Computed example of a mutant assay.
Amino acid sequence: MTALTRTPHADLPARRPDPRALWPEHARRLYDHLVALYGEDDPLPTLAAAWIGHQRSVHTMKSYARGFRIFEEFAREYGVHPMAVKFALADTFRLHLETSPTWVRVRGGRRGEMARTGPPYADASRKNALSAASSFFVYLDKVSDDGVKNPFDAVQRPYVDPDYSSTPGYTEAEWARFLAVARDEHRVAAYRKRAYALLLVLYTCCLRIDSLLNARVEDLGYDKGHRVLHLEKVKGGGRKKKPIPPLAWDALQEYLGGREAESEWLFCTATGGQLDEPAVWRLLQSLAKRAGLPLRGPHGTKVDAITHALARPDARPDKIQSWADHKDSRTTQRYNKRKELLDDSPGYGIGAALAGALQHGAEE
């Protein structure tokens, strides 16, 4: 009898690991959503999830996944597989976004109940949905052996004025009021330390909200005399150290209360889960009402931080550009331009002169 030789592969497990287990959160969520609609045998769920995982930043993953869901729902309503969409339907998708009502929560309805009763998509949302769909086809072309024509190449996208923002801005005095309300007047006293620390770190470190919410306690550190936060992902991908000013560091330590366990979220819920963006939106809306200030979302915090930094007498635009994680200096200067369009408006001068003339006429 011939003796069998044991091969090196004999010790390998019979079941190979699934590479999909390494997909980031937004890729896995999109995959599960599409599998429920198309099944595992359809290539769409795997290709769409792999495309999302291919993106560099968490923000881009989330934005593209949201935009792709809008596109997929539209194609399905027209009875066309998303991967089979041609230019005519792609251009119809553009028109659809201009008039279609958006999904909003049903007041008084069941938990998670949604209805298409909201206003049509804003210009930025329409541009994002079209960009997401186009990016998906660009990815298909890259991974395909035969090449895939992008049906969105000739589709016009909405023009979004980079110098305009619908987000209301706060002055530095209003920000001080806002922070004081978070520290002293939050309706839930147990959450005051968390609210105060979160807003201070978000504002003084000029962070995107998704970057901060993805940070863990172990990401706090020390470098060359500075307390720092090691960010896993910033805009465009990569890691970065953000110095934390003493005021924000003290508030952060007061909130953490000695919590140092690894793998814990830096800002977490009462049960230790990751604090999410909807919770931060609700927090900011509640604090704004108590402070008597306009309602706004977390994106406005970074806008205000950049605007206030640029307005300081000792401002260094190049330093602010790096602090804000802007690759292009023109992006940083747009924040200054938006402020100047308000502060330096000629309307104030002619309005004051007109008020004086009217007052003089009334006295005569």
Rank of each mutant, 00 (worst) to 15 (best):
T2S: 11
T2R: 14
L4Y: 00
T7F: 02
A10H: 10
R16A: 08
P19L: 03
E25K: 14
H26L: 10
L37Q: 07
G39S: 10
D42E: 07
I52N: 02
Q55G: 03
R56E: 00
R56W: 00
S57T: 03
S57I: 02
S57M: 00
V58W: 04
A65K: 05
A65R: 07
R69A: 12
F71E: 10
F74M: 04
A75C: 10
A75L: 07
A75S: 05
E77L: 07
G79F: 00
V85I: 07
L89A: 05
T92E: 12
W103A: 06
V104L: 07
R105E: 10
G109F: 12
R110V: 12
M114Y: 11
M114C: 12
P119A: 08
D123V: 12
D123M: 15
A124H: 07
S134C: 11
S135N: 05
S135T: 04
F136K: 07
F137T: 05
Y139V: 05
D141C: 04
F152H: 06
R157Q: 05
Y164D: 09
A173V: 13
L179K: 06
R183S: 08
R187P: 15
R187V: 09
A190V: 11
Y203F: 10
C206A: 14
C206W: 10
L207S: 02
I209K: 02
S211K: 01
S211C: 05
N214I: 03
E218R: 10
E218K: 11
D219G: 11
D223R: 13
D223C: 14
K224D: 06
V228A: 14
L231S: 08
E232L: 12
V234F: 09
K235G: 11
G238H: 13
K241D: 15
K242S: 15
I244C: 06
I244R: 03
W249G: 06
Q253A: 04
G257F: 03
A261F: 05
S263F: 13
E264C: 12
W265T: 07
A270R: 00
D276N: 14
E277G: 09
L283C: 09
T301M: 12
K302Y: 14
T307V: 08
A309E: 06
L310W: 14
A311Q: 15
P313E: 01
A315D: 10
I320L: 10
I320D: 13
S322P: 01
D325S: 11
H326C: 09
R334E: 00
Y335H: 01
E340N: 12
L341A: 08
L341P: 09
L341Q: 03
D343E: 14
D344N: 12
G349A: 09
I350P: 00
A352Q: 12
A362L: 06
E364C: 01
